[in-house]
Nucleic acid binder design. Structure first.
Lengths: 222, 222, 222, 222
DNA sequence: AATGAATGAGGATTCATTCAT
DNA sequence: TATGAATGAATCCTCATTCAT
């Protein structure tokens, strides 16, 4: 529901900002970053191209803001969900399942994660980067603590590292499981099938292994 | 040692092809994919731009060939090294260390891995993609077998999956550990430090955890 | 008199569009279609290259628009002149003379006619082609009616066909009478002289013959 | 049937030359001049690109030679046919019909005529142009004489002029009757139908009118 | 705050032609 | 005579960004 006319009040501006990010995210999935032009995004929010630059300093900054929004929202939802869980025998599997399932339903977020380092972080200003990284650092800290509480046997400080590794796995697995049309065709061949990756399954299992590995480490290191 | 003049014999052509890929790889690290033009690559092999297109059908195909070369060479070296190892008490750590160390010394390979899904696989023909994926599939099969032999307690077929997960981790960790200049500056701040990632260390530990997790799974599933 | 600054009003846009077409037509005569670049045209209207693409979707579309303008202007002037004539004994010769003379003074129009089928109509969209052809069809209809009124003894419906044949003669004669420098040199030789064609004279006589032939046909067919 | 191996004897060379021109003509109809590359022509004669340049100094010269061949062959056939005719009451119509029918069955020739002035005569040497024009001048002379003999009432010298006008009409009508795919679609519309031209019919009628006009002129001028 | 016309740098790709073998 | 690898000029068009209104 785009804001009409001029956004004078700060609250209107925030709403307009969000409507831009929504459009950007929506279009991203359809057209891909490289093929998506600022003109297209503008058209879809029923704004002029120039207006986008009143809210974001560049195309990259705009999509980084979209990512910041998607990621923090998702993260908060996840942590909230995790915090509610009480320790359980099969806690690890439940956590892994939760993460994998919720992520798999966020294609826009995953698309953004795929380009964040290569593209989005290339043409931005210090402050933009800082804001994004602070959001990330904060979630990392909070999330790490929750992990350590939820997963018995996790050495102190390992929660954060675990999260970082899961983050890396998400990025890597997404790329492998989201091939271009031509590659998708190649992956249909029987001799290439082994390279096919189902994002959700593989992420879940990876997380489980990472957690168990981390738990085992304590013993091994001792 | 570039081929002189016209490469008429097939062996000369292969040499020229390789010299182009060398130049492409070298330039990639210096300038990054987006800022690197075909003209620059051509200049650095002392060839004309058009000549590059005699050997590769597009910029993407050229860099995918560079990756195919780098990756298969590295992979073969690794597997050879692994095959020589005899089972050991701390086999897992040795394997992880070998992989992480050898990869960390291959920045070109890592840069290519970072763009392979987003960029290289976007503008190529079926056959180009097929060739690349077949190389991968073959290494995966062979490598998976070696893993299963070297790592006791690894369920049958898990060697391949393990490799795929390591591959994903490599891609993700590389992106996190290779920030753009602006982001690097941000990462110097004390409150952001936690987002810094040392590729080699983190990869090694991730591999160890993934292996242990996979080994533990057998027990857990039993 | 080029439009200053940004053309915001529709009337300014039309003026700018026209100034582009003027420059394009002017340059065409000097450099020829193939040797004329969009950059050159842009420079001559003191606009940026990209601006040309705000007004025309391609080089071909731009020159087709130039032709549409030149042709309709010329046509309207001609028809106006013809409409004023009152039937005369030597009406045919006067009409032929008028057409040939006025066309001979429009080298840009003639150059455009020479490339319209081979070049301009090759890379355009349906709508662009439609607009051009509709202009043509309308003039053909109107012009055909005037011909039939002005030229006694012309069978009903023959006015349009006559116009089409004159159109064809214009295209063919222009090509023969406008040789490249090398060919012009060849045409200076006594044994080749017979291939020289004076556009205006030959067109005039051709028109006269076509008219008389059409008038005679009625008798012959009867 | 391409000549095998090296063409040493002059007769072999001529055969090879002709096989190149055949391939060039054949491909021209399929792909159009602009889209047709020397590599393609070479491939279709099973020769190397460089070999083409042993026989022709440029792409333009090659197609001009193709035209020279097609045109002289067609012309000779026509004149032979005309020479055999004995004067007749409806001689004019028979001649017109003969010309139109035979031309309509030579699409390659017509395609070449369409580009001869715009393209082929632009990048050739004096001698190439001279050879072509001499062939033309000779046919014009011979053909003019035949016309004057066959068509009673044709003023002396008018045979050549008549031929030139027919030539012009051929070029112009071919362009109008051979639209690009997009334009062809436009021409299907009822309001644009009037611009459709059937080459053979229209040429025949045009020739008849031109002849009758020329014959009438004598009377009018007297 | 919003607009959208103007900018112009930027680059992959093609292909006629050459020439060493 | 034949080859085909090498050349490199040549150019259209895109699109992120700016800025006058």
């Amino acid at each position: 529901m785009p804001v009409k006319q001029r956004a004078r009040k700060d609250e209107d501006k925030q709403a307009r900002r969000r409507s831009i990010l929504d459009a950007a995210g929506r279009m991203l999935r359809e057209r891909g970053y490289a093929d998506l032009t600022m003109a297209e995004v503008a058209r879809h929010c029923r704004l002029a191209k120039g207006t986008l630059y009143l809210y974001f300093s560049s195309k990259e900054a705009m999509f980084l803001a979209a990512l910041e929004q998607e990621l923090s929202t998702w993260f908060d939802g996840l942590l909230e969900g995790l915090a509610e869980m009480r320790p359980d025998r099969d806690e690890t599997r439940r956590i892994a399942e939760t993460i994998a399932t919720s992520l798999a339903s966020q294609p826009t977020l995953l698309d953004l994660l795929t380009i964040v380092h290569n593209v989005l972080e290339q043409n931005i200003e210090f402050d933009t980067a800082l804001s994004f990284k602070q959001m990330l650092a904060q979630r990392l800290e909070f999330g790490g603590a929750i992990f350590e509480r939820a997963l018995p046997g996790l050495p102190r400080g390992e929660g954060q590292r675990l999260l970082l590794r899961i983050y890396a796995a998400v990025v890597g697995l997404r790329q492998m499981s989201d091939p271009s049309p031509v590659v998708a065709k190649v992956l249909e061949r029987p001799d290439i099938r082994c390279l096919r990756v189902d994002f959700q399954t593989e992420l879940r299992e990876t997380i489980i292994d990472l957690v168990r590995g981390a738990q085992a480490r304590r013993v091994a290191d001792a």
